[in-house]
Design a protein around this nucleic acid. Structure first.
Length: 702
DNA sequence: ATTAGGG
DNA sequence: CCCTAAT
């Protein structure tokens, strides 16, 4: 442990770690706060909208099926468009389950989805349309220990085990009909429905239907040859991806279900095991083909039922939405942007609110940190590697080879590194850990899939293509939660700033001993991006990732799942009544940004910049000296200057935090004095310029 | 979006 | 570091 002279550096109230807002836009927080509540609503609605969208979409699909799918079993060639959609799906999944990062959200989403499934299955009795929809579904529960990270970190923690390979440890395969949760509280279910629509006609047809793959959306086409779907292997073909709002609603098939068995308050709006069970049960018994038909034709009918489960009190509204889906979509489009912002806020809130607050994190030297993943399943005592429950037998798989059932006992959480003085209290340690976890979770998570220790990066591959199928060793399959770093490529550039370079050099431990706590987020898999990001940016940069998740989610929602974003104002209110009580309580609480004491280096850069530019030009100062330090806003700099001036004036004994060299403080005083004087002069001049005119008037008046 | 200042 | 108000 590194000893710290002092824990706090001036501010005492910055315990809350998570950094929800992007630095730049952080200043708009005023509005954020005000919209906090709305956000909640938004979210709720979002989810509903998503589901609704799915349903609607599905409904739409059937008609089209007439032309596209006569050969359901054959699983005709799938067009690129479909692939695109698949991608979209994938992304969307991310958004829902990861970016949002909130357990609540995740749960809710899953719930809705599962419900939908359930309904669908129940509707099997009346399959009219012939929509070629293959769907396989997989649920997975896996356990993995998390413990990778920076080499030095490991050392510090005294832990060196846990490799990637370990992660993928526990994946259990069970029959599709499996319905027991065992100790596990998390269950991920993936369902994929494949539609048959020819590649070429795809664009036009969709357009005709008015909702799908628009021809103008060729961007995502990977150019891969169309995959062929065999009758028995569903989930084999990538689906169409679409940017249009509608299509973003899962006309397709990748649903992730996260089910929580938690019985405490949280469960209130989130968990409905029964529903899921139902689903599981029925699924296996129904033939793919049949199911497909059902799904295709009856999705929309499911809608009304949704209310029962999720939106008990918004019955009316929901229906309304369905009825006017046209206008609905329209509004979605027009308001596309609006919700995004809200989302951001929501995310942070929700993270803080539930997921995080209930997480169960233990820090132990031997194992490093075992993080339970609150968002996905709080209170999981999952001892990594300990899979007490086995999902089921492989036998069922054979009967239903298209379905892959996995059981995720726990998620591996990216390694955390915590540095704290020995004199710190246990309470503060807890806070630190909490902060660390918050930072990660709040920062946005991605789910990573590991196959035989190797990360599967291609989201567009089908399970079977990837090798994740019933007849493969699923024990080699692993899931992990990864911090979202994809969006801070910016820091990649040459260091925070010329002046700051030292800061960025990879020796955080020594450089930040005084920091209350240094929290690293190791990334389980060192992807290329991560590499870059981490190398150039040390600790501070890492933290930068915190605010970014927001951006990430925004991007995604914008590009991939507009559906999620769009929310008619009216409906928002109506639907908002949903399960997010707890949130709304704290909805007002907007997370504080994590506190990041200025390093001496930074101070020096600041001083230097101010000496040159003067006070009152913080924007320029920022650009000049902190352009690459995303987490330092001009307001931060201004504040820092303020405190610096204050610090310089007080006696060294009264100063706290990392001591700033007296030399710097002297310069601060000098600069401050100088520029204050300048300012005064300026004002004088201005007054003098105005005086001449005013004086006469005054005289006249007199 | 910035700046300034109080908290 | 947050929040507001005023630009």
């Amino acid at each position: 442990m590194v000893l710290q002279k002092r824990l706090d550096y001036g501010f005492n109230g910055y315990q809350v770690p998570y950094t929800p807002r992007a630095t730049r836009s952080a200043r708009r927080r005023g509005s954020f706060k005000k919209r906090a509540e709305d956000n909640n609503k938004m979210c709720a609605f979002d989810l509903l909208a998503t589901v609704a969208g799915k349903l609607l979409l599905e409904k739409k699909v059937p008609p089209s099926s007439s032309n596209a799918s006569t050969d359901e079993d054959q699983g005709p060639v799938v067009g690129d468009t479909e692939k695109k959609e698949l991608q979209d799906e994938n992304k969307q999944l991310k958004v829902e389950t990861c970016d949002r990062g909130s357990c609540d959200r995740g749960f809710i989403v899953s719930e809705l989805v599962s419900q939908a499934h359930d309904q669908k299955f129940n509707l099997k009795e009346s399959p009219h349309h012939q929509d070629d929809a293959h769907f396989g579904f997989a649920s997975a529960i896996t356990t993995s220990d998390c413990s990778e990270g920076f080499g030095d970190q490991k050392q510090v923690i005294g832990k060196t085990e846990n490799k990637m390979g370990t992660l993928a440890s526990k994946v259990e395969v069970g029959p599709s009909g499996y319905r027991e949760y065992g100790d596990c509280k998390l269950e991920v279910e993936t369902k994929r429905i494949i539609k048959d629509e020819s590649n070429k006609s795809g664009g036009m047809q969709f357009d005709n239907r008015g909702d799908r793959c628009s021809s103008d959306d060729p961007v995502v086409w990977d150019g891969k040859p169309p995959a062929v779907v065999s009758s028995d292997s569903s989930a084999k073909v990538p689906l169409c991806r679409d940017h249009s709002p509608r299509s973003s609603f899962p006309a397709t098939r990748d649903y992730v279900n996260v089910v929580s068995r938690d019985d405490d308050e949280n469960s209130s709006g989130c968990t409905h095991p029964s529903t899921t069970k139902k689903f599981f049960r029925s699924a296996p018994r129904i033939g793919d083909r049949r199911i497909r038909k059902i799904l295709a034709s009856k999705y929309w009918k499911v809608a009304p039922k949704l209310k029962d489960v999720t939106v008990s009190n918004t019955d009316g509204e929901l229906k309304a939405v369905y009825r006017n889906r046209n206008s609905y979509y329209r509004s979605i489009r027009s308001e596309r942007n609006y919700p995004i912002k809200k989302r951001r806020l929501f995310n942070s809130i929700s993270n803080y609110d539930e997921g995080i607050s209930r997480k169960n994190v233990c820090l132990s030297p031997e194992r490093g940190i075992d993080g339970d993943v609150p968002d996905l399943c709080h209170k999981m005592h999952g001892v990594p590697g300990t899979s007490s429950s086995v999902a089921g037998s492989h036998s069922s798989f054979q009967s239903r080879n298209s379905h892959v059932k996995l059981r995720i006992k726990s998620f591996r959480v990216p390694e955390l590194f915590i540095e704290i003085p020995e004199t710190a209290t246990v309470g503060s340690l807890k806070r630190r850990v909490m902060e660390a976890v918050n930072a990660i979770l709040g920062g946005g998570l991605r789910v990573g899939v590991l196959l035989q220790g190797k990360k599967v990066r291609d989201d567009n591959k089908t399970l079977i293509q990837t090798g994740i199928s019933h007849d493969n060793q699923l024990d080699a399959l692993g899931f992990s939660l990864e911090p979202n770093t994809s969006q801070n490529p910016a820091p990649l550039s040459p260091g925070d700033s010329p002046h700051m370079l030292p800061c960025n050099s990879p020796q955080p431990l020594t450089r930040y001993p005084a920091a209350p706590a240094v929290v690293h987020q190791g990334t389980c898999d060192a992807t290329t991006e991560l590499h870059l990001a981490n190398i150039v940016n040390s600790i501070e940069s890492d933290h930068d990732s915190a605010p970014s998740p927001t951006d990430m989610s925004i991007d995604k929602s914008t590009n991939d799942s507009k559906a999620l974003v769009a929310v008619p104002a009216m409906s928002v209110e109506a639907l908002s009544v949903v399960p997010m009580h707890r949130k709304s309580k704290r909805s007002e609480m907007v997370q504080r940004r994590i506190r990041r004491p200025f390093s001496v280096t930074e101070v020096e850069a600041l001083v230097q910049a101010v000496e040159k530019l003067g006070t009152g030009r913080w924007r320029d100062v920022k650009l000049r000296a902190f352009d690459n330090a995303k987490h330092r806003t001009y307001v931060d700099l201004k504040d820092k200057w303020k405190t610096l001036v204050h610090t310089a004036k007080i006696s060294p004994q009264q100063r706290r935090g990392e001591p700033v060299p007296q030399e710097l403080l002297d310069r601060v005083l000098t600069a401050h004095a100088f520029w204050s004087q300048q300012q005064a002069k300026q004002q004088l001049k201005q007054q003098q310029q105005q005086q001449p005119q005013q004086q006469p008037e005054a005289c006249l008046l007199l």
